[in-house]
Design a protein around this nucleic acid. Structure first.
Length: 459
RNA sequence: GGUGCGGUGGCGGAGAGGCUACGCACCGGCCUGCAAAGCCGUGUACACCGGUUCGAAUCCGGUCCGCACCUCCA
């Protein structure tokens, strides 16, 4: 089965053909760590995580690199505000980011380079760009000369002339041209800075991704990921830098073969932004919902579609997940390993939908459709459906054994349930309901089934 | 002004020329101390206007509306 992904550079859904099938290489622009991650950061992380999982189904060796931006003006401003060293701030929030993503079943990338660990490499790349006459030095800044790259605008479909009209770009005195962007800028004495041929300073934002992807993956690599909003200018600038450093005016394909962009998370139809005060932090959501519920919410729409976030989406996902798991767990299967998942038609249909440009809504619908069929199926098919569902949930990252139950004491719960069942036997329903309420206050939901009373954590 | 994405039932959301997903919610029934779950059943749909076609939500032309990017942004 072939994998297809939509490539934003060619604007087409294309069959994915790796440069080297023995080593598939992917890069994703990671977070700038100066605050808690919001749900938009999480969407990018979850979607790329799924892409990597899907590719691993077909290719044994997939190398996934995603950076941490740990030097940037926003970081400097925030650390000045908090009166703490910038390193302290970035260390704190990169740890928080990784932990939060882990809660969403997003594993760490194979390599997670930090910008500040690659300043020397960036300086080398900038020097190369100057040598190639694609960059110039002015007032202690090093600028990329956009005019020097004839393919500039190919990814975002903007011609150099048309975007100027109505745009809010101002020509700073260190720019030859309004579109030129910063490769290196000077730092004030109190600001973080590194020595360079152009004085003490720090890198511009775009150069780090060009440098780190080159160092960690080498170019060209297979897929470059990121949010749609990064298409311009960030990704456009990355292409310009990387290709110009390789060879002036070389084609964008010399950097990355496929461009994979995920859509935005909106809130009530509007973009999340700090000024509107409608930022949804993963940290806050995790207090009310478990990671799988949040993950399912993020996967409920196709990754390229805008995702409108509201409280209903989480409630709906929570119920959906509960229903799928209950139905699945009802089929008693001792050991899935006795079956061959590659000969399971229920799983095949599911996997095909993910192989077709990560169609998660369709994949989810197939899980539901399979479970609905259970009643009319014979024993073998039921086992196959259970197996397919297990593999499907695992691939989507929606199934996790309850590992954290070890430190959870259920003695009291079982004791209360026994007490309640005693009361029910004696038809003391008032007491029975009281105990149920008591458990509910502890976030424990109970259900009386024909096999006895079962309880679940309601978070 | 330029560039791009989209408008599907009460809501979310795939699909894409005839088989009209799936989930959540609603309503009726069975079950039940109650509740929940489960099971059975019912309904509502493709922004608008033209055209092509035996047949269009799906193709073509036009109109309207929404969102995003062009400035830091996932």
């Amino acid at each position: 089965m072939d994998i297809f992904i939509f490539d934003s550079l060619s604007r087409k859904k294309r069959e994915f053909i790796p440069i080297d099938a023995n080593k598939v290489r992917i890069y994703a622009c990671g977070p700038t760590v100066y605050d808690y991650a919001h749900i938009g950061n999480a969407r990018m992380a979850v979607v790329t995580d799924l892409l990597v999982r899907v590719l691993k189904k077909k290719y044994k060796n997939v190398l996934f690199v995603s950076n941490i931006t740990d030097i940037d003006d926003k970081i400097i401003n925030e650390s000045e505000k908090l009166k703490i060293p910038f390193k302290e701030l970035t260390n704190k929030f990169s740890k928080i980011y990784n932990n939060e993503m882990l809660s969403l079943n997003v594993g760490p990338p194979d390599i997670q380079p930090k910008a500040t660990d690659h300043i020397d490499d960036m300086i080398l790349m900038i020097e190369k760009l100057i040598k190639n006459e694609c960059a110039y030095v002015m007032n202690n800044h090093v600028m990329f000369k956009v005019e020097s790259y004839k393919h500039y605008g190919k990814l975002s479909r903007r011609t150099l002339e048309e975007q100027l009209e109505g745009s809010r770009i101002e020509i700073a005195d260190f720019k030859q041209n309004a579109r030129d962007f910063i490769l290196w800028k000077p730092s004030k004495d109190e600001q973080p800075g590194w020595n360079s041929p152009w004085g003490r300073g720090r890198p511009g934002w775009h150069i780090e991704c060009s440098t780190m992807s080159k160092i960690c993956l080498d170019t060209p690599f297979d897929i470059h990921c990121g949010g749609v909003d990064l298409t311009f200018p960030h990704h456009e600038n990355e292409i310009a830098q990387s290709c110009s450093a390789f060879k002036p005016n070389s084609e964008p394909e010399n950097f990355s073969k496929y461009w994979f962009h995920n859509g935005f998370v909106t809130l009530n139809g509007e973009k999340m932004s700090k000024s509107l005060g409608n930022i949804q932090l993963v940290n806050d959501l995790l207090k009310k919902y478990n990671g799988e519920t949040i993950r399912l919410s993020l996967l409920s729409a196709h990754y390229r579609q805008p995702l409108n976030w509201n409280k209903d989406i989480l409630e709906q996902s929570k119920k959906t997940l509960l229903r799928i798991k209950k139905n699945f767990e009802k089929i008693k299967v001792k050991d899935f390993k006795i079956f061959d998942i590659n000969k399971n038609e229920f799983y095949e249909e599911f996997q095909n939908s993910l192989f077709d440009d990560l169609n998660t809504p369709k994949a989810l619908s197939i899980i539901g459709k399979n479970l609905n069929k259970i009643k009319e199926k014979n024993h073998e098919d039921r086992q196959k459906i259970a197996h397919a569902t297990f593999e499907a949930l695992t691939l989507l990252g929606l199934y996790k054994e309850n590992k954290n139950d070890e430190d959870f004491d259920d003695t009291l719960i079982n004791q209360l349930i026994d007490e309640r069942n005693e009361a029910r036997k004696l038809k003391n329903f008032e007491k029975a309901d009281e105990i149920r309420q008591n458990l509910k206050n502890k976030n424990i939901e109970i259900e009386d089934t024909k096999d006895g009373t079962v309880w679940t954590k309601s978070k």
